[in-house]
């Protein structure tokens, strides 16, 4: 007899037809471009009119990765502290990956990152869920105040890859795409059908690694620095 524990929650992650859904939360200060980034990836364009996010919004996109349907379900969260405080446990429950976003033209959005990371650490202690750091609004070249070196050092310290990008710049739209694709590959190749928290960021096969290299080359045109990837 198989007795399920009280809080058994399989169906949310394991879909019919081997289709897997990964929950990814997008975190960072207000106005850094979380909504625009997720919109760019899911709708394929930069939103004409953005609005403040209230609570949390959901966007998703299904990708075909090596013949498997993988759905990335993005939780686009509100940056204001009052929303964060009350909804935070919701965000982190069964999360598969975390994307931290800051605005390269806004120093304080970068300075706040340790708080976001600390929150993530307390919400999912000890787990090795993949995390990435995204510096947004690189199109505003003459307004950039957060130096790539500093961001890279910070990313290294916290063991995550750094991407500097722009949700607004149409000519680089495949760059945002690339970031999420990389994440999707990472998640797909993590142990299948297991509880999300046990999927490991660093356990990639060599095939996986070569793909990352490929991606890295494809992305290298645009201030990308992701040296701490599995290489």
């Amino acid at each position: 007899m198989t007795l399920l524990p009280d809080n058994a929650q399989l169906p949310a992650l394991v879909h019919k037809h081997q289709k897997r859904t990964f929950k990814i939360i997008i975190i960072g200060d207000s106005n850094v471009g979380k909504t625009c980034l997720t919109f760019r990836f899911c709708a394929g364009r930069y939103p004409k009119k953005t609005e403040a996010t209230i609570g949390v919004d959901f966007r998703e996109r299904t990708l075909d990765i090596d013949g498997e349907q993988v759905t990335l379900q993005l939780w686009d969260t509100a940056g204001q502290e009052r929303f964060r405080k009350s909804l935070v446990q919701h965000y982190y429950r069964n999360v598969n990956a975390v994307v931290f976003v800051y605005d390269v033209t806004n120093q304080s959005s970068f300075d706040e990152l340790p708080l976001w990371i600390a929150e993530c650490d307390t919400q999912c202690p000890g787990s090795k869920i993949p995390r990435i750091l995204v510096g947004n609004k690189c199109d505003l070249a003459d307004k950039i105040v957060v130096k790539t070196n500093d961001a890279q050092r910070f990313a290294d310290q916290h063991n995550m890859p750094l991407f500097e990008t722009s949700a607004a710049d149409d000519s680089r739209s495949d760059h945002v795409e690339g970031i999420f694709l990389t994440l999707a590959h990472k998640l797909k190749n993590s142990k299948p059908m297991m509880s999300p928290s046990s999927s490991s960021w660093r356990s990639s096969s060599s095939e996986d690694r070569s793909r990352e290299v490929g991606l890295k080359i494809a992305l290298s045109g645009f201030r990308v620095s992701m040296t701490c990837f599995d290489l």
Binding site: S30, N31, K49, T50, E51, A52, Q80
Partner: peptide, 13 residues
């Protein structure tokens, strides 16, 4: 600051 940001993004309204 928060008000400025939110008002700047209220064009749809």
């Amino acid at each position: 600051q928060q008000v400025l940001m939110d008002v700047a993004r209220s064009i749809r309204r």
